[in-house]
């Protein structure tokens, strides 16, 4: 994030805290897309992602007086959104699944295996689609680290700040995420799966 944005955020927050509630709209407009992207990737569901964005901004507004202006507002929002998504995962795990439906890895199985479809069906955006699906298929903790690092371009310390994990843990999660992604996205895997799809 640019320093200019941070300064702008600080001004806007001061304005809101001074009683101008409408000024918060500028922050919503600035960060809604990033929050939506994070929630969409972590929750894997469009409607839940929209709810998550709304909940995140409402929560941020209610707790705005507790925001530390020395830290980036963007990271604070990402942290609230990440915690909300973790709560949603926990809530999903508490809901009993019907017999014979779903597995322990349901949250990653929500998106089909990236290369499970034949190349012909993937269309011109196949590469983008494959990467998106491979990220979605990561286990939750690895997915958080990978999405924040590669899609949202955060440094390790910033990811640690967002997730509340030590930097060493973030490194480990990223390393494991890369290992899974490499296996999922490697050409041989793609070719085999593509051939299997064509044969079938």
């Amino acid at each position: 994030m640019l320093d200019a944005d941070a300064a702008d955020d600080a001004r806007t927050i001061a304005q809101v805290l001074a009683g101008d509630r409408e000024a918060f709209g500028a922050l919503v407009a600035r960060y809604a897309r990033r929050l939506h992207d994070l929630a969409r990737r972590l929750l894997g569901d469009a409607s839940e992602a929209e709810d998550a964005v709304q909940v995140t901004f409402l929560h941020a507004y209610r707790a705005l007086d507790r925001f530390d202006p020395q830290r980036p507002f963007r990271h604070w929002l990402l942290r609230i959104a990440t915690n909300h998504c973790r709560n949603r995962w926990a809530a999903r795990r508490r809901v009993p699944k019907p017999l014979g439906v779903g597995t322990d890895d349901d949250d990653r199985a929500a998106v089909p295996e990236p290369a499970a479809r034949p190349p012909a069906e993937r269309g011109p955006d196949a590469e983008r689609e494959r990467v998106r699906e491979a990220l979605a298929a990561l286990p939750e903790t690895y997915r958080v680290a990978a999405v924040l690092r590669y899609v949202h371009d955060l440094e390790l310390t910033e990811i640690a700040e967002v997730t509340g994990d030590p930097v060493a843990t973030v490194k480990t999660h990223l390393h494991r995420a890369r290992a899974v992604l490499r296996r999922t996205l490697e050409p041989s895997h793609e070719t085999d799966a593509g051939r299997a799809g064509t044969d079938g």
Binding site: V28, E50, D153
Partner: peptide, 17 residues
Amino acid sequence: LRAEPLWPLPVALVGRV
């Protein structure tokens, strides 16, 4: 991975928030 673009923002979401 870095080439992955952000998901497009639903049109009405900012207004709803």
